[in-house]
Structure formats: C-alpha cells, structure tokens
C-alpha cells in the first residue's frame, strides 16, 4: 500500500448540522436504517470546561481493518490508497464484520439482508473529486487527507477523542482537531 487516505475532522469548526450525513444518504440513496456516516456529540463532562462539540464519523478505512480480517467471503478489499471497499455482491449477510468493527460502521441493510458501509466515494476520488460528505460540509470541518507521519506531527492533531474506542484496535485512518476549551457553539 503506497498511501493511506482518511478523514480529518475539526470539532472546532463543526456545528453539528448533519449535512455530511444527509449528503452521504443522498449520494447513495441509502435506505432509512443504515447510517454510513453519523454525527456524534461529545459528552460535555469529558472536558474540563462545559463544551458542546461534535464529530462526524463514517468507516475509518483502518490500517488494520478487523472487518476485512473476519469476513469469510472476501467482501472487503483494501486499495493501494488505503480505502477499504465493501462489495455487497459478495456479502452473504453473516454480520460478523458488524461484530468486529469497534466503530459499528458496517451496518446491515434489513431490506437487502446484506451489510453496507462507506467506501470513501472511491469512484469520485478516482475522478479527482472529493467525497460527497466533504463537499457538503459548509464550515469545512471535514476534510479528505493523507494520513502520514507529517500530519501526525502537526500541533493539535489528535488520533482519538473522548468517547471513542482505542485506536490501537484497528488503527483508524481518521484524525481530529479537538475542541478548544472555553469557546462554545450551542445548538439546542
């Protein structure tokens, strides 16, 4: 694998509008239940000062994807650019990947009895476009980035946030810019 694409989410910019969620649903005409991308609210008491902040998460295209390891039908493949693709044509709906992913990102589509997840809009990326969620994010809180050492060495780049599973399990390809204490964006 020559590189690893992933997401960078900036909680300081995110207003929790869920535009990314809707853009994803719209792009793929996803049925009601599966949520390939989802916006979460951080627990206020996880920080020293009260704060109302959000983060947005889809499949993290992990460096060590548990979904890919456990799937018996090889429905998952990891591309040269690090994108983990799920092929619904191969899926037999055993649901093992839904048990193995700590982020609950592969989700069963009850109508099709198969699993679905974010494929990082690889077809858009192959045409030089950005993923639908990134394009839809009005404050620019969600970016497509290359995960590498130089990104990780930048000040303020976090590998995890409070309330997330340990990144040691699958090495997710997502980085965060956490909320700055004291500043608040309320959305009640």
């Amino acid at each position: 694998m020559s590189k690893q694409l992933g997401f960078l989410h900036n909680s300081e910019k995110c207003v929790g509008c869920r535009g990314c969620e809707i853009a994803c649903k719209n792009e793929y005409q996803i049925e009601a239940t599966p949520q390939w991308r989802k916006v979460f609210q951080l627990h206020e008491d996880d920080f020293s000062l009260p704060t109302r902040m959000f983060f947005s998460m889809a499949c993290n295209h992990c460096a060590h994807p548990e979904c890919l390891r456990v799937c018996p039908v090889k429905a998952y493949t990891k591309r040269e650019d690090g994108i983990v693709i799920h092929d619904p044509n191969r899926c037999i709906g055993c649901r093992l990947c839904t048990m193995a992913c700590p982020y609950d990102r592969p989700q069963i589509n009850p109508a099709k009895k198969k699993v679905e997840k974010c494929n990082l809009c690889y077809q858009r990326i192959d045409q030089g476009e950005k993923p639908a969620c990134v394009t839809a994010c009005i404050p620019g809180a969600l970016e497509l980035v290359e995960i590498n050492d130089s990104l990780d060495q930048k000040t303020g780049i976090l590998k995890t946030l409070p309330g997330l599973p340990s990144p040691k399990i699958t090495s997710p390809s997502i980085r965060f810019i956490g909320p700055k204490q004291g500043k608040q964006i309320r959305r009640d």
Partner: peptide, 9 residues
C-alpha cells in the same frame, strides 16, 4: 458487549 463509541448521538 463490544467496545464502541460512547459519545452521544
């Protein structure tokens, strides 16, 4: 019980 995202949604 799996390790999961415990943030709110």
């Amino acid at each position: 019980t799996g390790i999961q995202i415990t943030a709110l949604f």
